[in-house]
Amino acid sequence: MRAFLKDNGLSVGFGLLFLATLVGQAISGHGSVNHDQLLHHGDPISLGHYVSSALFWADVMENWQSEYLQFTLYIFATIYLIQKGSNESKKPGDAGRESDEEQLVGAHAQADSPRWAQLGDLRTTIYSNSLLLVMTSIWIASWLAQSITGRIAYNADQLGHQSAPVSWLSYITTADFWNRTLQNWQSEFLAVGSMVILSVYLRQRGSPESKPVGAAHGATATEG
């Protein structure tokens, strides 16, 4: 168990943080919804009802999709774009998909390379893009889930105010859908841009997200 935690501290730690904050979101979201119910002279709903409602899941999904979009775009953009001096970037001149030799695929694979990296056929092409493929799929699926659950929550509000419910196609053109979407995207893009440019001049000793403290500001992609 100790060896397991030592080897997997990051994934275990963030997994537990995720679960704890999801529970926190459920409890506070439930309180917020019932406060609103009281204001509108409605009946309070149970916590169980709330966590299985579109209201809760629309909030969860709108945050998921923006996070996965952030990482998806970052993985893609860093193939081709460079930020001189940033640890988050490849070195100037390394932009692009790089050679098979550099990427250790096909004939250049090593004995311990993953099997699909060694094959040199379509499977190698798929495996070469598997991280971006999976992250993109999760982004699309969570954005779709946001739109489907967001529509139900939106329609509940519409009905509560004697207005007509909308179809899914109508919902994805509403200000509600785009407000939920863009308010999350803007913060993600700012955070990524900040991380890229702040890491040129600022340091965190011991973190692989930072250059070594004594590395020159102009040094790009130096492992911490």
């Binding site: 997994g15 899941w57 969860v60 998921w64 699926a141 969570s142 889930a145 489907i148 659950t149």
Partner: peptide, 30 residues
């Protein structure tokens, strides 16, 4: 690498489960 593959599978399964449940909730119209 002890347990690392297990963590990989737990994450993927958890994400897939969450997405499926959310889409289900939206489709059922709860």
């Amino acid at each position: 690498m002890r347990g690392t593959r297990t963590m990989f599978i737990i994450y993927l399964a958890g994400i897939a489960g969450g997405l499926t449940y959310a889409i289900g909730v939206g489709l059922v119209g709860h």
